[in-house]
């Protein structure tokens, strides 16, 4: 129990740190980024931390979502892999304008619903409330529509893709073996104990 609370606490502080990070892209132009190294210690590559499609607010919403979709447990979660930044970048470069609109509209709606229910932004909400809201969204409960649920699942799929194709996802969550060297058509599952990384297209 204690461990779990600590994990949640760590999550919360990470999310608070995000505000610093979001300002960082502007601040770094002034201070060269070095002074921000502590705040960014968990980030992988500052070059990838430039807003692409989303607004700052939308990215914060997405970050909170990513943290709930794939939380830190005994292994790192989506947030540690910069998954929200990956999704923003992916949306900008790999999706057409209709799909991009679907993504931004649902992010806005999640925030609007949160504002109506709690009087504050989604990313500022309590984790239990955030979880309840996303659960209602995935189950198409009022005030969410089927289109909203579909849009959420697109973002969820992107978070999952980004995470399980990240270095952390592929090497820590999954069984990673860059050069197996041989093939066996049957081994005890217990000898592996988790799913393999790789497979098409890797």
């Amino acid at each position: 129990m204690t461990t779990q609370n600590n994990v949640i606490l760590n999550r919360r502080s990470l999310l608070k740190g995000l505000g610093v990070v979001l300002g960082a892209q502007f601040a770094s132009q002034l201070v060269g980024g070095s002074g921000l190294s502590v705040a960014m210690a968990f980030q992988q590559d500052s070059a990838l931390r430039q807003l692409q499609l989303l607004s700052e607010r939308q990215l914060k919403t997405l970050a909170s979502m990513a943290d709930l979709i794939i939380p830190q447990t005994d292994t790192p979660g989506a947030l540690e892999t910069d998954c929200h930044w990956f999704v923003d970048n992916q949306l900008k470069h790999c999706f057409d304008s209709d799909e991009q609109a679907v993504a931004t509209v649902i992010l806005n709606k999640i925030d609007t619903v949160a504002l109506g229910q709690w009087g504050k932004a989604f990313y500022q909400g309590e984790q239990a409330g955030q979880l309840a809201l996303l659960t209602a969204l995935e189950a198409t409960e009022d005030p969410f529509t089927q289109a909203d649920t579909k849009a959420f699942k697109m973002l969820k799929a992107l978070v999952v893709f980004g995470f399980f194709t990240s270095k952390v996802g592929m090497t820590q969550l999954l069984a990673y073996d860059p050069v197996p060297g041989g093939f066996k058509g049957s081994v005890p599952y217990a000898s592996v104990g988790k799913a393999y990384s790789g497979g098409y297209p890797f």
Partner: peptide, 27 residues
């Protein structure tokens, strides 16, 4: 023939630690 990996159908698995654990196991 193969066992599905993390690409398996994620739509029914909700969100959170259970989803994460579920996707870390082969289908």
């Amino acid at each position: 023939a193969s066992r599905q990996g993390w690409q398996k159908d994620i739509r029914e698995m909700g969100i959170g630690a259970e989803l994460k654990a579920g996707l870390s196991e082969p289908g």
